[in-house]
C-alpha cells in the first residue's frame, strides 16, 4: 500500500480516537483494581450492557437526535447496576473476612460475565444491532473523520476529564485515593471502606458502560461485543502499569494508535495482534509497565 502523509495522519487520528475509548474502559478496570485489589473479569459485559442500553434507549425512547440523552441515561443505569452487583457479589468478600479474596473475585466475576453474556443472548437474541445514529462526516485538518467516532472520542475526553476532576478535586475522590493507598489506614480513622468499594465499583463499571454506549453506533451491539474489549482493557492496564490511572489513559491511547497504524502499514486482519506485540515490547523494556512501580517487599 502506498502510504501518503495524509493517510498516515488519518489513521493516526483514528487511532487516537479509538484509543480514548480504550482508555475509558481501562481506567474503569484500573480504578476498581486500585481500590479493591481485584480484577473485574466482567468489565466487558458492563461495556456490553452499556451498548445495549444505548441501542435500546435511542431506538425506543430518545431517538437518534437525542442520542446523548441515551448516554446520560446509560450512565445512571450502569451506576445503579454497579451498586447492586457490588453489594450482592463483591461486598461479601470483604465483609465476611474471606481469606482468598482474589480467588473469590476471579471466580465470581468470570461467572458474572458468563451469566450476563447469556442473559443478553436470551433477551435480545444473537442478532447484531446498532442504534440509528449517523452524525455524518466532519473534516479535521482537511481529513474526513466519521462523526460517530468523533462524538465518541469527544464524549470519552469529557468523561475522562470529569473523572480526573472527581479524583483530584473532590473529597469523594480523595476518599477513593486514600482507600486505594491504605485500606486499613482509612478504616482505622473511621471511614467505611465498604461504602468506598461499592461506589468505586459502580463508577468503574459505569466507565466501561459509557465506552459501550459511545461506541454502540461505531461497532455493532451483540452479546459478545465486550469480550474483545475486555482483552484490550487488560492489555492496556499492563502496558500502563497495574493500578496506574495515568498509565491506563496513556496505554489506551498508545494501543489505539498501534492498532490503527499496524492495520495500515502491515495487515488489517492482524489488528488485535498488534496490541499483544506492543505489550511484549513494553514489558521487555519496562517490566512494571509504563507507569508501574516496583512493590517494596519489606
Amino acid at each position: 500500500m502506498n502510504v501518503t502523509p495524509e493517510l498516515f495522519l488519518n489513521f493516526l487520528i483514528a487511532g487516537i480516537m479509538i484509543g480514548a475509548l480504550y482508555a475509558l474502559m481501562a481506567m474503569g478496570i484500573t480504578f476498581i483494581y486500585s481500590i479493591m485489589k481485584m480484577i473485574n473479569w466482567a468489565m466487558g459485559e458492563f461495556y456490553m450492557i452499556g451498548s445495549y442500553a444505548q441501542w435500546f434507549l435511542v431506538s425506543f425512547f430518545f431517538g437518534s437526535a437525542f442520542w446523548f440523552l441515551g448516554v446520560l441515561a446509560t450512565a445512571v443505569i450502569l451506576f445503579l447496576v454497579g451498586l447492586v452487583v457490588q453489594w450482592l457479589l463483591i461486598r461479601p468478600m470483604f465483609s465476611t473476612g474471606m481469606e482468598r479474596k482474589d480467588e473469590y473475585g476471579t471466580v465470581v466475576t468470570i461467572a458474572l460475565a458468563l451469566f450476563l453474556r447469556n442473559l443478553a443472548t436470551v433477551l435480545s437474541g444473537p442478532n447484531t444491532r446498532s442504534p440509528d445514529i449517523d452524525l455524518g462526516r466532519i473534516m479535521i485538518g482537511g481529513l474526513p473523520v466519521s462523526g460517530n467516532r468523533f462524538a465518541a472520542f469527544l464524549g470519552a475526553l469529557i468523561i475522562i476529564g470529569l473523572f480526573y476532576y472527581l479524583l483530584n478535586y473532590t473529597w469523594l475522590g480523595r476518599a477513593f485515593r486514600a482507600g486505594s493507598q491504605n485500606r486499613v489506614g482509612i478504616q482505622t480513622v473511621g471511614i467505611n471502606v465498604l461504602r468506598i468499594d461499592q461506589i468505586a465499583f459502580a463508577i468503574g463499571v459505569t466507565l466501561a458502560g459509557l465506552a459501550g454506549a459511545l461506541l454502540a453506533p461505531v461497532f455493532n451491539v451483540f452479546p459478545e461485543n465486550g469480550a474483545v474489549t475486555t482483552m484490550k482493557g487488560f492489555e492496556i492496564i499492563i502496558i500502563g502499569g497495574m493500578g496506574s490511572l495515568p498509565g491506563a489513559a496513556l496505554g489506551g491511547l498508545l494501543l489505539g494508535i498501534v492498532e490503527s497504524l499496524g492495520s495500515v502499514f502491515i495487515d488489517t486482519g492482524l489488528r488485535n495482534v498488534y496490541g499483544f506485540i506492543f505489550l511484549i515490547i513494553v514489558l521487555l523494556i519496562k517490566p512494571t509497565g509504563l507507569f508501574g512501580e516496583k512493590e517494596r517487599l519489606s
Binding site: A175, A178, V189, I191, N192, I196
Partner: peptide, 12 residues
C-alpha cells in the same frame, strides 16, 4: 493536610 482531613471528610 489532606491526610489530616480524611477522617473528617472522606465519609461522603
Amino acid at each position: 493536610l489532606e491526610n489530616m482531613l480524611i477522617p473528617r471528610f472522606a465519609d461522603f
